[in-house]
């Protein structure tokens, strides 16, 4: 269903300079969105935008990785690579969502966690790990959308969900193809060659059961027609939120646990 683009072409489409970012989706689907900032501990991380908004009469906590569109924004948001305070803000906002029984919407778009001195000093490994564990205890529905780039632990940190949608040309992977090629072949310029082997397209991830549904984009990509995926997203997000809200919290958490419990492919000798 996803056209004839190669994996590497999709990597380029997912990073396209004109590709919309989470804020277009938020402002279109939840016009009353109110941003809530800060981790109450160290700082506010602009790479992750969090707040409350109403999508088709459902009040949701919306949390999005936002790369920014202008150069000024991109620098302020450090190109969508979260710092530890970003994950810690998410921890605060998901606990708040649980307290007020609001469903949660995660919008994923990041090259990955921020590879820097400050991020390491403030414990990004601990922040990601603690957020992952916390999300398995939050008794309110979580829906995630892989919008564009789903890079490594930075993507997974807001990728724990009960239902996961992915845009047609988005990617989701252990590392960027450049980083992957640098680690395995000591040559980042082989990125275009390894992209296919990495199995990072929406089709691959759907086949593996990592995501639940693919949202089509206009021919040529999301930047050609901004509104094509948005109405489908609105329908899917609200449908799913409504049906997940019917589940009792215990079942919701058991299902979430079971989903991630089965990930992994290995063999077990019977002898």
């Amino acid at each position: 269903m996803t056209g004839n683009h190669s994996a590497w072409e999709k990597v380029q489409l997912a990073r396209h300079a004109q590709r919309p970012t989470a804020k277009l989706l938020i402002h279109t689907l939840a016009p009353d969105f109110l941003e809530l900032k800060g981790d109450r501990c160290f700082a506010n991380d602009d790479a992750i935008v969090g707040g409350i908004g109403t999508i088709d009469k459902i009040t949701m906590t919306i949390i999005a990785e936002e790369k920014g569109t202008t150069l000024e924004e991109k620098i302020r948001n450090h190109f969508g690579m979260p710092h530890p305070e970003g994950y810690r803000k998410v921890m605060r906002l998901v606990r708040q969502a649980e307290k007020f029984s609001r469903p949660i919407l995660f919008l994923i778009d990041t090259p990955g966690a921020y590879p820097g001195f400050e991020a390491e000093s403030r414990g990004q490994a601990e922040a990601i790990a603690s957020l992952l564990r916390l999300l398995f205890t939050i008794k309110t529905p979580i829906i995630a959308v892989v919008l564009s780039e789903g890079g490594s632990g930075g993507a997974l940190a807001i990728g724990i969900a009960d239902y996961i949608l992915m845009l047609e040309n988005a990617t989701y992977s252990i590392l960027s193809p450049e980083g992957f090629a640098a680690i395995l072949y000591k040559d980042a310029s082989l990125a275009n060659k390894v992209a296919d082997d990495m199995k990072l397209t929406a089709d691959d991830l759907f086949a593996y059961g990592i995501i639940d549904e693919i949202i089509p984009e206009a021919a040529g990509g999301w930047h050609i027609d901004n509104y094509t995926p948005l109405s489908a997203l609105q329908t899917k997000i609200t449908e799913k939120a409504r049906s997940l809200l019917q589940l009792d919290p215990k079942t919701l958490l058991e299902n979430r646990q079971a989903r991630y419990r089965r990930y992994g492919i290995y063999v077990e000798d019977k002898t």
Binding site: I128, L132, L200
Partner: peptide, 21 residues
């Protein structure tokens, strides 16, 4: 991460964190 297992390697972070919850 075990690079050669791609997304499945990433998902082990979630799986182990879930068990620790």
């Amino acid at each position: 991460a075990r690079m050669q297992e791609g997304i499945f390697s990433l998902m082990q972070m979630a799986k182990t964190a879930a068990a620790l919850a």
